[in-house]
């Protein structure tokens, strides 16, 4: 257990040294700038606009941070040989992969917590009328989207190079976010090819819009843990499958 915990801690620490809080600070600065401009314009749904900009920005920033960190932890470690030195100790590859992924998960959690701390200070200062619990939950759900993206990078990174891993994860994230839109679009036509029928079966499984809850905060369907649970469980299931596949490839492939 000790090496496992140490691997998690050191994976997290190595990401911390990547100046991980810089994107958050940049985004917080932009948020302050945008809100200042919007307050000058006198827009009525001021609070909603600020929240949705913050949510969208954090979502996208987090995805790109995950792509960079995830690929560094597995692909770069493979290409630079860091994995080789660590696995030459006869430490099980499965545990190494799981601990490294958990290190990424902790780093991403600290990313969202840091943003929420800045967010809390900012809304307290501005005295916005934002439904705070819903907003916090919506921000927190982004963590699961990032965990899926991280699992995708680990899956591709277990057998492919960095470029393939990042590109593959990026494409599948986009597909997961646009899945409901795409399936509603293809379902209306009369001509249903086999591909479309198969897609309609797969689409609900690869649909992460339930985790992107920025609209729910203002539409009136109040968010709650119970409402978010199916989406979270689906995310956990997807992560388990992806990490399971990553472990399989990482165990069977040569490291060189």
């Amino acid at each position: 257990m000790r090496p496992f915990l140490l691997l998690i801690a050191l994976s997290f620490r190595s990401l911390l040294r990547d100046k991980m809080f810089l994107p958050i600070l940049v985004w917080a600065g932009l948020l302050i700038l945008v809100t200042t401009i919007l307050s000058d314009l006198g827009i009525s749904d001021y609070g909603q606009v600020v929240f949705q900009i913050a949510h969208f920005g954090l979502h996208v920033t987090g995805v790109f941070v995950t792509l960079i960190w995830g690929s560094r932890l597995i692909c770069e470690a493979k290409s630079s040989g860091g994995v080789e030195a660590q696995l030459s100790t006869a430490y099980p590859r499965t545990l190494w992969l799981l601990a490294t992924y958990l290190g990424l998960a902790v780093a991403l959690l600290s990313f969202v917590v840091s943003f929420l701390a800045i967010w809390t200070v900012w809304i307290s200062y501005q005295k916005f009328t934002i439904p705070s619990f819903d907003a916090y939950l919506a921000f927190f759900l982004l963590w699961f989207i990032w965990l899926i993206v991280g699992a995708l990078v680990f899956f591709f990174g277990s057998f492919a190079r960095q470029g393939v891993a990042v590109f593959g994860a990026l494409c599948l994230w986009l597909l997961g976010m646009g899945s409901s839109f795409l399936s509603s679009g293809v379902g209306t036509g009369d001509d249903k090819s086999l591909v479309l029928i198969v897609w309609q079966k797969i689409a609900p499984l690869w649909n992460f819009s339930g985790l992107n809850a920025s609209n729910s905060v203002y539409v009136g369907d109040s968010l709650s843990f119970w409402l978010a649970t199916p989406a979270v469980l689906q995310a956990v299931g997807v992560i388990c499958v992806l990490i399971g596949l990553a472990v399989y490839f990482f165990e069977t492939k040569d490291i060189h």
Binding site: P3, R13, S14, S80, G81, G82, E84, A85, T89
Partner: peptide
Amino acid sequence: PENQQLAARLTCEENLKLHYSLISGR
């Protein structure tokens, strides 16, 4: 190993501690 195949973002001491822990479990 042949080249500098170590965890680049960790310090010398951290690399050594991690390596020892992976081998011995302590």
